[in-house]
Structures are given as structure tokens and as C-alpha cells.
Write a protein that binds this DNA or RNA. Structure first.
Lengths: 140, 140
DNA sequence: TTAGATGCAAAGTGTTTGCAGCCTG
DNA sequence: CAGGCTGCAAACACTTTGCATCTAA
């Protein structure tokens, strides 16, 4: 269950009603840190909750994102994917196997805060390339 | 005309046919470094070339991007925008006025090359916040 | 009991595709 | 003249919206 309990407390404190669907979406993300898309989440939850709808998934994700419990990534130019990791971190995307994984490099931290009078509230760094596994496969 | 001539040479060397539409898209980007979307480009070029089509704009942009003459950004989660600046740089997006401007911070350079056996070919860092101008306006 | 959440379907937006006709080399 | 680019429209994929029904407190 990881830090589900803490998360549930935080959401309750914000006055958010914890419906079965919202808990299911949050739990799925916490248990699957593979940066799933809306469709990944929908397909998986549909097995356990056959009547769940895509619109509900969208609405739960928006709510959890606005509550600061999850992050929305735009690493794919055509669809959103989500990350329950609240720590400051970045992402690597493998162009070959399309896996996304976390990058714990502190580098862009220095860009947070202020930059020439502009207030920086959030930094997303996306690294695109070929992961170690794929490089080994193709004998590079 | 800025560095149009150089760009045209490079494209010719690659054997790319320089049609009026391709040159118009490239020139528009070089003259308008405001990170326009496909629709921005389309609307503007339609004034000079009334029969130009969106499909052509998409095709020109894809070609120029693949030729390495322009960059495609995914700073907006719902639509692409483009940047003719070939230097390594990043982007700031103002949540209020929605302007995007270049950030010449060297920071993430250190992430290029290699990272734990993964080959990093491209790094895009997006800074989200409120620009100086908007902060002044609201008397912050 | 009732405000507000869900499920469904339709609409909306950005992008891609197929193909006839046109242009460039 | 021929390959391939353009313009048009239809198809697509993801997301948002409207609304009747249901549910949690």
C-alpha cells in the first residue's frame, strides 16, 4: 500500500470526497510507476470495475493533479501520462521501447525559484534517447 | 533575412526540394521567434498564399524538423509549437500571458551524452511560471 | 436528503491519411 | 515527362462537455 494512507489523509484534509473510482485511480498510479496514459489506466481499471468510464478517469486525474497528489507529464506530444512521484525529478524516454523512467539528477534545481525576474514554479526536463537495455539488444 | 541563406544551402545539400510553401514556412519561423503553433503559421501564411492548406504546413514542418532545421516543442500538452533556434536552449512558459521565451541556461547540458548507460540524444527543459511583465501588472 | 460524482454519448480539437491534380527539375 | 509536392476532405486519436442517474455523507 506504500504511502496510500498518507495520501488519503491529505486528500480528506482538503475536503475531497474519496469515491471508489478516485481511490482506484490513485492506487493504480501508486502501484504502477510506469507513467501510464489515460488509456492504460482505463483498460486496467475496467477489469475490476467494468462500468467505469473514461470521463471518470479524466475527471479523477484532473482532481488528483490539482490536489498536488500526482504530476501530469507531456513527454508524449499526443497524450498525457501520469506520475505519482511527488519528489522533484525528471524523465528519460526511450525512443525505441517507449519506456519512461525517472531521472534523479539535481541539475535543473538551480533553475527553480527565480530567473531574470520571472517566477519559476515548476520545471519539467525530458531526456530523449535510447536506454541501456535497447542499446544492448541491438549490439550497439 | 537573417540566416536564411545558410539554411537554404543546408537544405539543398540534403537534396530537399525548396518549394514556395517550404520556404514560406521556414521564413515565417525564422522571422517569428515566438514559438508559433501550426495554426498560427497557417493563419499567417494564408494571407499571402490563400490556397495553402494545413496539411502542407504539417508536411513542411515535419520535413524541416527531420532535416534538423527547426525544433518541435511539447510545452503545450495539446498542440505542437516550433522553434527555429538551433542552439541548445530551453523554454519558459508564462501561465498567465501564455508567452513562451527562450532560456539560455547551460544547466542541463551536463545531462546530455550519457547517463547510467542510457544514451541521451536530446534534452528539453520546460520552466512553467509567471513572467516578470505579468507579475508587475498584478502588482505582485 | 442533496450536493456533487459517475457513466454514457456526442461534440470538439489537433493531427494524419488518401488521393487527384499540379508543379518542378 | 515523371516523381513527388500540394490542396482538399475524410478519418483518427485524445480530450472535453452535457446531462440523466446514482451515491456518499
Amino acid at each position: 500500500m506504500k504511502n496510500m494512507q498518507e495520501r488519503i489523509e491529505r486528500l480528506k484534509e482538503k475536503g475531497i470526497v474519496l469515491t471508489i473510482q478516485r481511490l482506484a485511480v490513485l492506487e493504480f498510479l501508486v502501484e504502477n510507476c510506469t507513467h501510464p496514459t489515460v488509456d492504460d489506466i482505463y483498460k486496467s481499471l475496467k477489469e475490476k470495475y467494468p462500468t467505469i468510464s473514461q470521463a471518470t478517469i479524466y475527471s479523477c486525474l484532473e482532481l488528483l493533479r490539482d490536489a498536488g497528489e500526482i504530476q501530469e507529464l507531456s513527454i508524449h506530444r499526443d497524450k498525457a501520462c501520469f506520475d505519482p512521484n511527488l519528489r522533484m525529478h525528471h524523465h528519460f524516454f526511450c525512443k525505441q521501447c517507449e519506456k519512461i523512467f525517472d531521472v534523479n539528477i539535481e541539475c535543473p534545481v538551480s533553475m527553480q525559484g527565480w530567473f531574470d525576474g520571472n517566477k519559476v514554479e515548476e520545471v519539467q526536463a525530458y531526456l530523449y534517447g535510447v536506454c541501456e537495455e535497447c542499446r544492448k539488444k541491438e549490439g550497439g
